[in-house]
Design a protein around this nucleic acid. Structure first.
Length: 469
RNA sequence: GGAGCCAUCGCCAAGUUGGUAAGGCCGUAGAUUGCAAAUCUGCUAUUCACCAGUUCGAGUCUGGUUGGCUCCUCCA
């Protein structure tokens, strides 16, 4: 397995801390609003990583956190009058539901910041004891970036002369402009705060990840050099979030946080980054109202995870056509029992994914397999061995890439209710009768009628089948 | 102002160590079909934003130009 390390900026052979075990930690969402397509893409990217590593027989431990205490959540609490827990629970449930709809496998560990306060406090206290962190008069605790010689090695942002136009907040009590908050002191009665030895307040954004990784991974997957194998997240987290995480962990534990860093690209709408501030967010829940989760998944993973992804409906329909072809093949080999996948196919698709998740090549091998199989099936429609093998191939695709697992006839009938189905069947019967009588005017009229209903029909050796367009 | 990324067929999109441009959609010709659809087969970039350089050889390396994007503030 080769992966692109976005800190070293090169593709590296994946050599885990413990042979055949892979620990992955991905920064999850701050749960104050619904998940948008960007969350989905990040989730999907690391889902593919996890699935690929599993297919390569690694024992994968995946961690993904929920930031459930933060300024925006508190603002929502104040606005809505709901409790913090009500809000975060709601969005966490939504998030999990939607990601599952996209075929994302659940993480093994899903820690919440509010459930990790002890670990957070002890890590901060440790840093204070070493004088790497300091408490200011307000009660805020800052990390002293000047104490970490390696600060800046993650994002390669070095040589800050303070002359740049950095928009770092200016706080006179900070020792260095780049110092960041580990802990934010309470701001009055409206605030949500926790008691600690240093002050009453709540964790800063970066500390929770460090603390949670320390708490959940270090003893099972860590080493003297690294806490975990792979740390992932969106490209925008590289700085300052991951830089700061790395600094905290390095100073608190004496070893590096992650051996490899991976970052996924953005989802753009009309060529621009999708974000709250631009007001062009596209929520997963809205997309799921229009498109089946599997179709969305198939589309969102169709571009390499590191590239930016330009979301548009035309491309989505394009990728749906590719998925349709896979399901048409599945129809041809159903019903049967899967045997073993084709060795060459299995090797090719795994090799593609092992190369830093080269999904394009993986999809091309699928096209190859579909085409070759259809060809053979045209020659010999009753090749049982081929059918069994093909079904196994498709099962492999489902396991590795997370699509193609549906029952093929129902795939083409998503969103059609039973009454309509009955009507369609009746019309097809009538058309077949007309065809037997060679009344082609009649049969074509029926086909037009079905077409007007959004139903396409195809006459096959096994009778007439239909698909929703 | 600082840092970085990207630019490959009408559209989407691969292309580690330089060796002579995957795949899909669309289009098109044919096989098949009562006609279609589905399926199969053939065709579809002498060329990789532009300019210069290194090299026997560059989409791939170097320098420059143009255009687009991101980060430096919460952000997947």
């Amino acid at each position: 397995m080769y992966i692109y390390d976005s800190v070293k900026k090169t593709k590296l052979l994946f050599e885990p801390i413990i042979p055949q075990k892979a620990s992955i930690y991905v920064c999850g969402p701050t749960v104050y609003d619904d998940a948008h397509l960007g969350h989905a893409r990040s989730s999907l990217s690391f889902d593919l990583l996890s699935r690929t590593l599993k297919a390569l027989r690694y024992e994968v431990t995946m961690g993904k956190n929920f930031t459930d205490i933060d300024d925006k959540i508190i603002k929502k609490v104040q606005e809505t009058g709901q409790s913090l827990e009500e809000i975060t629970t709601h969005y966490i449930n939504r998030y999990q539901e939607e990601m599952r709809a996209l075929g994302v496998q659940d993480a093994d560990i899903e820690p919440k910041a509010t459930e990790s306060l002890e670990a957070i406090e002890s890590m901060i206290q440790g840093l204070i004891d070493k004088d790497i962190a300091y408490v200011v008069s307000s009660g805020d605790v800052y990390f002293d970036t000047s104490k970490d010689a390696n600060y800046g090695t993650i994002s390669h942002k070095v040589g800050d002369d303070e002359e740049n136009q950095s928009r770092v907040e200016h706080n006179s009590e900070k020792r260095n402009p780049k110092d960041f908050a580990l802990w934010k002191a309470c701001h009055g009665d409206e605030d949500i705060c926790f008691e600690t030895k240093f002050s009453k307040g709540r964790p800063g954004w970066h500390i929770e990840c460090s603390a949670m990784i320390e708490k959940h991974f270090t003893h099972t997957h860590g080493s003297d050099e690294y806490s975990i194998d792979i740390h992932g997240g969106g490209a925008d987290l590289l700085f300052p979030h991951h830089e700061n995480e790395a600094a905290q962990s390095r100073c608190a534990t004496g070893h590096e946080l992650a051996k490899y860093w991976m970052h996924n690209g953005f989802v753009n709408i009309n060529g621009e980054k999708m974000s709250k501030s631009l007001g062009n967010s596209f929520f997963v829940k809205d997309a799921l109202k229009v498109y089946d989760g599997e179709i969305l998944r198939n589309y969102l993973i169709s571009v390499h995870y590191r590239n930016d992804f330009n979301f548009n409906e035309e491309d989505l329909l394009n990728s749906k056509k590719r998925l349709d072809k896979l399901y048409r093949l599945k129809k041809r080999v159903t019903p049967t029992k899967a045997s073993k996948p084709n060795i060459a196919f299995q090797k090719a698709i795994l090799e593609a994914m092992s190369d830093d998740l080269n999904i394009s090549v993986a999809l091309a091998t699928i096209e190859d397999m579909i085409s070759a199989t259809n060809d053979k099936l045209d020659e010999n429609p009753k090749d049982k061995g081929l059918k069994k093998e093909t079904l196994a191939n498709i099962e492999l695709i489902d396991k590795l890439l997370g699509f193609g697992g549906k029952e093929p006839f129902s795939y083409f009938q998503i969103g059609i209710d039973d009454d309509t189905k009955e009507k369609i069947e009746t019309l097809i019967e009538a058309r077949n009768q007309a065809k037997i009588e060679k009344n082609y005017e009649q049969s074509d009229a029926i086909r037009d009628e079905l077409s007007a209903m959004g139903i396409a029909i195809m006459d096959t050796a096994n009778g007439t089948v239909w698909e929703k367009l």
